[in-house]
Write a protein that binds this DNA or RNA. Structure first.
Length: 948
RNA sequence: GAUCUGAUAGCUCAGCUGGGAGAGCACUAUCUUGACAGGGUAGGGGUCGGCGGUUCGAACCCGUCUCAGAUCACCA
């Protein structure tokens, strides 16, 4: 709906009417409001019928803004590009600038080169950046080492997928060509990752960037492998492992995810070979019966006592297999008889060893039945299952199918159903390594987990650890440093390539085809990146062990635990002192972010829309250690608004700091109440946030900064400062300018770790010393800034102002109405406080025409307010009626009465008096006095009014 | 089955050694007073999951139950 509107332009008392037509009311108003500074409008009034505009007198806003080159809203994009380049050029992130300082080290959990970073990385990296930036400012030689992980199976899967789209497999290309492709991929994604780091504003030392397949790191891998082998802690052998038929590789136990699946339990009746009967077994994987080499029963099971030792004629393959007795079998479960397939089940494998049973592998490495499967050869394992069920049913062997929900292992990467599979692999013997780690932890020389409950989780895992299968039948990764002689098959394990067989001198050697589990190299990350095993590595000597590792709870087993035991084994110390565990970033409904749900959040999108600082602030401060957090756009918005608030407060300051230099800052001597108060608050805040950052309490830190900046600095101090800044007293003005410049400078330093860009942008505008806030000194608590009496005075003023505002709101006193506030202080000290600060009260009580009168009698037609130490009366003849005021006061009295009673009761409680600490009792006493005083005054006032 | 985490305002969450329940958003009213409408001011809204216990005093400690989630281990 279009309608026309009149716009009045008011200037110097005169009003010009302007007709504007064809616009939508409120939308237009908002547009006009937005461009207000640009066209020099000072005020706009809008209601549904008219809109009036007042131009700025004198200096108009647009000019002021141009001078400052600071628009009314903060523009993150320009600042981000500019300052990151500036930081890089200055080399501020490079460690080693302070050779005499104590080092502080963090190594980044290397992201996989499989794709783009997600918001979870955003959380992880932001927390680290906050720590490293804080420590850098605190004067440490801070090193944050970046890098990425080759992520063997994950990356190879991706590249193979890409190939598949071209109709190719890795075998078509061959090992060498394929690896070239993967390296291309790696370069592309490592660049992307680096770019994303920069967008997030991370202060990484790029000169030390590492990749797990770098020469140095590969050397570390070989060193560790050979040493462990020589110690007998790495062995090669034929065992049941978890096999991923899609990726055609072995997996470790923790790379298998168990998911609940609705399946069937098939009951099979195996006939005895002598025809004397049958025995029933049950299985969820009937196709494995082709590899059965026994049936096991419990030795004490009466039902089968006589059958032990007899033979069974295995259907379909017509193989005779024995009935064996083994304690493993649970008499109570199912029929009490178990089919044994040593080559395709870990438990059966163990039983097979005990009873010396043959191991028959019935499928190949891609899950297709092999020649041992007789008629089912070349059928896929699941096809075979269908077929064999049908056949067994026809032969009367399958007597029952029962629905059965069970856990089925899936490959963490490919998603394929994992097949327990007998094959020759390399393993790390975990017991001795784990014991050392457990001992370290229990003797107090271990890792400080934050929150500490994760220590329990870590210990539980490492105490129950099984040997680690480290070989992978992949191409992308560290090749196992083992060479076999083609003549005599002798195995050589060595750091360098072996050219001649030590046994038969043959030069025909071939290296083991397999590569190592990607976590084998990640497990060395904290020291391999710093130059280990090179004994002369300066970085290793200086920066190891690292201070803290920051990561999510999802990789405690995969990574954290492995780093700990390898570091203990090879460097004789823990790789870091603290481990900060954070949660997962979930979507707004609490679901895990995933590709399939499409609910992932791209950090670059967040940065694009709201700026890197907003993203960093939101994500770092909306988390508590160890707890998951939900990603909500409205929280990013809140963070953006916070950034904008900081921006505008700074704009105000800068407008009033024209010509003011760093050398002009002088906060000594006589300062106003508000000045001393804000310095006090800033000082307190700096002490608290320093403590909280050291405790990894980023959420609390953020809240504290938010409250300090928004409430104390913007809502109170800046308002109070206006009196002095707009006043006539030049000396006083200079003091306020000093405080403003000083406090803002320190405030920018304090928020810098959280919001590096906006703090740098503002800091550079402010009177400052030094090249960058990145290297500015962290604010230290300064006892000279303590000002308890200013706090007391300020509290009084704030209470008074709030009380008057309340009254005003209640009776709706128009802004324009002239009011006199009558104030009666209780004592001389309060009197002097108020006297000194009259102007503040007059200005900020929510009305522009308020004057304060001290030493007057209480007027009749007035609303009253009692705050600690002061009675106040706001004469509002014509606006209030006395009955209403009495009613309001009665309500107030009731409330105070309740408080008084509560405290009195507490103080009358002998238990409390006897057992509560003295300061608590004292506080309660003071409260009671205060409440009583207020209540009595309210009562007195009611009586006064009733007499009128 | 074991272990762990969570349950606080309509929503999302804080509440860091037990001492008068908080924030943001949303909602209601109100305001354009030379930084900010991405603002200001005022306000409504909670037996802190239930029940017991310890304590002078419990959102917080202990026990127990209910619900939600996670991790680990599983027998065919």
């Amino acid at each position: 709906m279009m309608r026309s509107m009149h716009v009045f332009m008011r200037n110097e008392g005169g009003t010009t009417e302007v007709n504007l037509s064809s616009f939508l009311g409120e939308g237009f108003f908002l547009c006009l409001y937005a461009i207000r500074p640009l066209i020099g409008i000072r005020q706009i009034h809008y209601d549904s019928n008219q809109c009036s505009i007042t131009y700025l007198e004198g200096l108009c806003m647009s000019e002021a803004n141009e001078q400052l080159s600071m628009p009314t809203t903060y523009d993150p994009k320009a600042a981000e590009q500019k300052w990151y380049d500036y930081w890089m050029k200055g080399g501020y992130f490079q460690a080693g600038r302070l050779p005499d300082a104590e080092p502080y080290t963090i190594v980044i959990p290397p992201p996989n080169v499989t794709g783009m970073l997600h918001i979870g990385h955003g959380l992880d990296f932001t927390l680290q950046d906050i720590l490293i930036r804080t420590k850098r400012m605190q004067g440490y030689d801070a090193l944050w080492l970046p890098g990425s992980d080759h992520a063997g199976i994950a990356t190879q899967t991706k590249v193979e997928q890409q190939l598949r789209e071209e109709g190719l497999s890795r075998y078509d290309l061959g090992r060498e060509k394929f690896l070239e492709k993967v390296w291309d991929w790696k370069h592309l994604y490592a660049d992307n990752i680096r770019n994303q780091w920069k967008k997030m504003g991370l202060s990484l030392d790029y000169s030390r960037e590492r990749f797990t397949l770098d020469e140095g790191l590969s050397d570390a891998v070989r060193e560790v492998f050979v040493k462990l082998y020589e110690k007998g802690l790495i062995y090669r052998g034929k065992y049941i492992i978890n096999w991923d038929p899609a990726a055609r590789t072995a997996l470790s136990d923790i790379e298998v995810e168990y998911k609940e699946v609705q399946g069937n339990l098939y009951h099979l009746k195996y006939p005895l070979a002598d025809g004397s009967g049958s025995i029933t077994v049950a299985t969820t994987r009937p196709e494995t019966m082709l590899g059965d080499t026994a049936v096991a029963v419990h030795p004490k099971d009466e039902r089968y006592k006589d059958m032990i030792g007899k033979m069974i004629l295995l259907p379909i393959v017509n193989r005779e297999i024995p009935i064996v007795a083994d304690d493993y079998v649970d008499k109570e479960f199912g029929s009490g008889a178990v089919k044994i397939t040593p080559a395709h089940d870990p438990n059966d494998f163990e039983i097979g060893l005990r009873h010396d049973l043959p191991q028959i592998i019935v499928m190949d490495e891609s899950g297709v039945m092999n020649d041992q499967a007789g008629p089912y050869e070349s059928l896929d394992r699941f096809e075979c299952r269908k077929q064999i069920v049908k056949d067994l049913q026809e032969q009367g062997v399958l007597i029952r199918i029962e629905e059965h929900v069970h856990q089925v292992g899936h490959s963490e990467r490919s998603g394929a159903v994992v097949e327990p599979y007998l094959s020759t692999q390399w393993f790390v013997k975990m017991k001795p390594l784990a014991e050392r780690a457990i001992e370290a932890q229990k003797s107090g020389k271990g890792i400080n987990f934050v929150p500490d409950r994760f220590e329990k989780i870590y210990l539980h895992w490492i105490e129950n650890i099984r040997d680690w299968c480290i070989s992978r039948q992949l191409w992308w990764g560290h090749r196992i440093p083992a060479w076999f002689c083609e003549e005599c098959n002798h195995m050589h394990v060595a750091r360098e390539e072996v050219h001649a067989c030590e046994k038969c001198s043959s030069t025909k050697l071939r290296q083991d085809e397999d590569v190592l589990d990607t976590w084998f190299s990640s497990g060395l990350w904290p020291f391999s990146t710093l130059g280990w095993p090179d004994a002369n590595s300066e970085d290793f000597k200086r920066y190891y062990p690292t201070n803290v590792l920051v990561t999510g709870y999802d990789i405690i087993y995969f990574w954290v635990a492995r780093m700990i035991f390898t570091a203990l084994e090879f460097t004789d110390q823990t790789p870091f002192k603290d481990v900060l565990i954070h949660g997962l970033v979930r979507d707004s409904e609490g679901r895990k972010m995933s590709k399939s749900l499409g609910n992932g959040v791209d950090p670059l999108e967040v940065i694009e829309r709201y700026g890197a600082d907003a993203m960093r602030y939101m994500i770092s401060t909306s988390s508590t250690p160890g707890q998951d957090l939900r990603f909500r756009w409205e929280r990013v918005e809140q963070a953006r608004n916070f950034a904008n608030k900081i921006w505008n407060a700074s704009r105000f300051a800068l407008m009033n700091l024209e010509g003011f230099t760093y050398d002009d800052i002088d906060i000594s001597g006589e300062l106003g109440t508000a000045d001393r108060w804000i310095l006090h608050r800033m000082n307190e805040t700096s002490r608290e946030i320093t403590r909280l950052i050291d405790a990894y309490e980023f959420g609390e830190t953020g809240r504290l900064l938010y409250n300090f900046i928004w409430d104390d600095l913007c809502d109170w101090y800046i308002e109070f400062a206006k009196i002095s800044l707009y006043g006539q007293d030049a000396a006083q003005k200079k003091k306020t300018q000093s405080v403003l410049a000083y406090v803002l400078d320190r405030t920018m330093r304090m928020i810098h770790p959280f919001m590096p860009y906006i703090s740098e942008e503002i800091w550079q505008h402010l009177p400052h010393e030094g090249e960058t806030v990145t290297l500015a000194a962290w604010p230290k608590y300064d006892s000279a800034l303590e000002a308890p009496e200013a706090v007391q005075e300020m509290t009084l003023l704030m209470d008074m102002i709030r009380a008057v505002r309340n009254i005003r709101a209640e009776v709706n006193v128009p802004m324009s109405k002239k009011v006199e506030l009558v104030v009666k202080p209780a004592d001389e000290r309060t009197y002097n406080s108020i006297k000194r600060n009259l102007e503040y009260v007059e200005r900020f009580c929510g009305t522009s025409n308020l004057t304060v009168k001290l030493d007057c009698a209480a007027p009749d037609k007035a609303m009253s307010a009692i705050v600690t130490g002061v009675e106040m009366y706001l004469p509002l003849a014509g606006l209030i009626d006395i009955e209403q005021e009495i009613a309001r006061l009665n309500k107030e009295r009731e409330h105070l009465n309740k408080e008084v009673e509560r405290v009195e009761k507490k103080l009358a409680n002998q238990g409390f008096m006897a057992k509560a600490p003295a300061n608590v009792v004292e506080e309660e006493r003071a409260k009671m006095e205060d409440y009583r005083e207020k209540r009595d005054k309210v009562i007195a006032r009611i009586q006064e009014l009733q007499e009128v």
